[in-house]
Design a protein around this nucleic acid. Structure first.
Lengths: 217, 217
DNA sequence: TTCACCCGTTCTGTATACATTGATCAACAA
DNA sequence: TTGTTGATCAATGTATACAGAACGGGTGAA
């Protein structure tokens, strides 16, 4: 077994899963790329069994899809499908914002503010990688602020799934700064603690986000 | 291989998955019940491989959870967790109702009405199994009426996940009849094609459903 | 040239065997 | 009596083998 994959003491299947996720996120495996069990097994120096399990798990997460023909492929969406996914994500984000606004505590408020400060800092320095990370933290913090782990998990799942497509809209430094400003507005609306204001704020934010993502794809 | 499972020409793993989902939804396998691969393999007259795959898929859907010790168990939630799951489901159902109301076609309307008629028939005859099935069809049809497969899948996932808990509230014939009446109101609200009416209708429906489910658990 | 069919190849689905881990219980010592 | 340790066993993790189905290429006929 390759040491790189075995580094941690995870079951083989999990290790392979993690490795594949990393490859897909990094764009090494592009959308539409076909994955066959035998080749992967050879690559990881393992048998087909754990590879199969890893593929299965990734398919369950929507990261891979079962091809029309045979075999698994890295998920690839038409513009229509992409807009449908964003519509669903949109709904969930709005619900999260509304619930979070209702249940805001001092602690979660501080955490959101801290995440946003990091976003602004990264945007101003034009540090794309740092911004992407801080952006994740910002949104995840809002999810957790709902106080509902299941909602948070749901929203996080969609975020993972749409990650590659959203990332494309942050090409230039001005994109980062625009996003940070949008965060500011969204944050104000959530901090209003008014459900309608919060959900309308997230609706505006997500609509903007969707149109930018579609433009970049 | 048991004929019941092989009835359709599905891969074994899928057939086993479907059978287990049915058992869990119907409450044959209760929350907390431990499932081991060998026993299931014997039950289905299959080898461990497809059983394993089925369990994996169910775990990914949150229907099963990996036990503290070893092995998979039917997901079991505290009342607090249950209410959180229902809250999330609540949000998604409301969004579905709103979107479905906006995009209602003659065909989907007819399909929803047909499903509801079957619910009423089953409720009046006190046929619990038939009612549970018709109830599923009714809700799934609403999901499909959104025209968004991803939303539909999301909602369906939650339905599968909460199946065992919702099933408990249909103990008596009068529970079935009450549920069928609630469907009627919900259907009217969705058919109004007014977003606010539809989402408020679903909100009332789900709030009622949640309180009944919590009472039964 | 083109279409259809057949055959070889390759991949997935399933079964089975082997390895390893984790749990249970008994025995012994404090 | 209780805690700890070791052995045993059962269940999971992994490997390998086999069967069946799908893709591709090539050959033949129209």
């Amino acid at each position: 077994m390759t040491e790189a994959v075995q580094a941690q003491k995870l079951p083989l299947a999990r290790a392979i899963e993690a490795e594949l996720v990393a490859d897909i996120s990094a764009g090494v495996l592009e959308p539409g790329h076909r994955l066959d069990e035998v080749t992967l097994a050879q690559r990881f120096g393992a048998s087909r069994t754990p590879v199969r399990e890893a593929l299965l798990r990734l398919a369950a997460q929507g990261i891979l899809v079962e091809g029309e023909r045979r075999g698994m492929r890295v998920a690839e969406y038409t513009r229509e499908q992409l807009s449908q996914i964003f519509e669903a994500m949109h709904e969930i984000e709005i619900a999260c914002a509304r619930i979070a606004a209702q249940r805001l505590t001092l602690l979660t408020r501080i955490e959101i503010e801290a995440a946003q400060q990091e976003c602004v800092r990264a945007a101003e320095q034009g540090d794309r990688a740092a911004f992407l990370h801080a952006n994740e933290v910002f949104h995840q913090t809002i999810y957790r602020a709902t106080g509902n782990p299941f909602m948070a998990e749901l929203a996080a799942d969609f975020r993972r799934r749409t990650g590659p497509f959203r990332a494309r809209k942050f090409a230039e430094k001005r994109d980062l700064i625009a996003a940070a400003k949008a965060h500011d507005r969204l944050m104000r609306d959530i901090f209003s603690k008014d459900s309608a204001t919060a959900s309308n704020g997230m609706m505006a934010y997500m609509t903007d986000s969707l149109s930018k993502a579609l433009a970049a794809n």
